[in-house]
Amino acid sequence: MPENSSCASAGSCNKSSCEDCPSKTNPKSFLEAPNAASHIKYVIGVMSGKGGVGKSFVTASLAVAMANQGYKVGIMDADITGPSIPKMFGVSGEVVGTEEGMIPLTSENGIKIMSVNLLMEDPEAPVIWRGPVVAGVVKQFWNETVWGDLDYLFVDMPPGTGDVPLTVFQSLPLSGTVIVTSPQDLVSMIVKKAYNMAITMNIPVLGVVENFSYLKCPDCGKKITLFGESKIDSIAGELGVAVLGKLPLDSANAAKADSGIFHTVNTDELSAAVDVLKGLTE
C-alpha cells in the first residue's frame, strides 16, 4: 500500500485490519457536483454491452417520447468519439460559454443538447483522445453545462463497460439506466454484461429496449424478424427487469435522423418506457 495512504493500517494492511478501515466504512464518493445553474430531477443513462445496436437512436427516441409528454428534456452526448445526437436533431453551431458555464443548443422541439461536435470547428474531425481525457470531458458536460431546469437528462454512453460508462456511473447521480440490445444469439451475454456493470455500481436498471426487433411488411403488415426471433422477454425475466420496448427497423425513422428532424419520429413502441420514467420518484 502506498506510504501516503490515508488508511490507518498503511504498510501492514491485512484482512482483519481492513474490516474497520475508514475507507471501507465511509467510502469516498466520486460524484461530481452539477453546474450551479442546473436543476435536474432525473438522470438516465442509456448503455449497451456492444456497439451497433442503435443506442443513440434509442436515447434520442426516449428523449422525444418524454418531450412529447410535456417534460423538459436534455441529452448529454457522452459518446465522445462517435457523437451523432446533434445531427439527428438538426442542431449545429458552436456552444457559447458564459460566466455560468456552457449553454447547450436546443432542438426544434425544445430538447437541450450537449455534444463534443458542438465544441469543434469541424464536426467531421476525429476525436483522437485517450480515455482519461474523454472521461474528463464527460464530467465537464455535467458540471460546466448550464442545463437549467430539466425533468429528464438522458446520457448517451459509448458501448461497452470502459472508461466513459464507469465515469458516468461514478460521477453522475443516475436515477437509473436503460440497456439497449438487439435480437441476436449474443444478446444474453451482451445484456448481462451491461446489467452486471450497473448492479455492481449500485445503479438501478429500469429495463431493456430491443432495437431492430422486426421489420413490418409495407404491403401486408406482417412482422418479419430479420435477426431471428426475439429472446429479450426470457432474458429480461431471468434478470428481473422490464422490457421497455421493441423497436422495428423503419426506413422512415432513419430518413428523419439523416434529415435532422428526429423530433418527429414515432415513439409509440416506447409507451412502456414512458410509464416507467414517469413513475420515478425523487
Rank of each mutant, 00 (worst) to 15 (best):
S38W: 02
M201K: 08
T59E: 01
L105K: 14
K193M: 06
S9I: 13
G93Y: 05
A255Q: 11
T200Y: 02
E210T: 12
F154V: 12
S251W: 07
V276T: 15
W129Q: 08
D219F: 09
T181M: 01
A60C: 14
I128E: 04
N14K: 11
P22Q: 07
V58R: 03
K24P: 01
A255P: 02
A242L: 01
F57R: 04
T177V: 15
M66W: 06
P183W: 04
V205P: 00
Y71F: 13
P104V: 13
G240N: 07
A252E: 15
K139A: 12
V241Y: 00
H39Y: 08
C217D: 13
T59G: 06
P248C: 11
M47Q: 08
V155C: 04
P173Q: 03
V209N: 02
M201V: 13
E121M: 07
V73E: 00
N253H: 15
P123V: 13
P34S: 11
K192I: 00
A67N: 08
L270S: 08
G54P: 03
A60G: 11
P165C: 11
G90F: 03
K278N: 14
G54H: 06
Y71G: 08
K231M: 06
P86I: 11
D122T: 14
F57S: 14
A8V: 15
G93E: 02
P123F: 06
F262H: 04
E269M: 12
M114V: 11
G279T: 10
S56F: 09
P27M: 06
G160I: 12
W142D: 03
M47A: 15
F57W: 03
G207K: 00
V96I: 15
L174S: 09
P126I: 14
Y71H: 10
L244P: 00
G110E: 07
S6E: 14
S29Q: 07
S16T: 15
E108G: 11
V127N: 07
S16R: 08
T177S: 13
I128W: 05
D219A: 12
A236Y: 00
C18R: 09
E269C: 13
V241R: 02
V46N: 04
A36W: 04
V127K: 02
V164M: 03
K278R: 09
W129Y: 08
G52S: 10
F262E: 02
D122V: 14
T181R: 00
V91G: 05
K24I: 15
V265F: 01
M157S: 12
S48P: 04
N202P: 03
F141I: 11
Q69I: 14
A125D: 07
E282F: 10
V43Q: 00
G160Q: 05
M157Q: 06
K246E: 13
S271V: 15
G176A: 08
F57D: 05
D233R: 04
V208T: 12
V91K: 00
W142Y: 13
C7L: 09
S115I: 11
L62H: 04
L118A: 14
K72W: 02
L215W: 09
C220D: 09
A67D: 08
L31P: 01
P165D: 10
P132F: 10
S259C: 10
S188N: 10
I190T: 13
D185F: 07
A255F: 06
S230I: 02
G52M: 08
Y42V: 00
V146I: 14
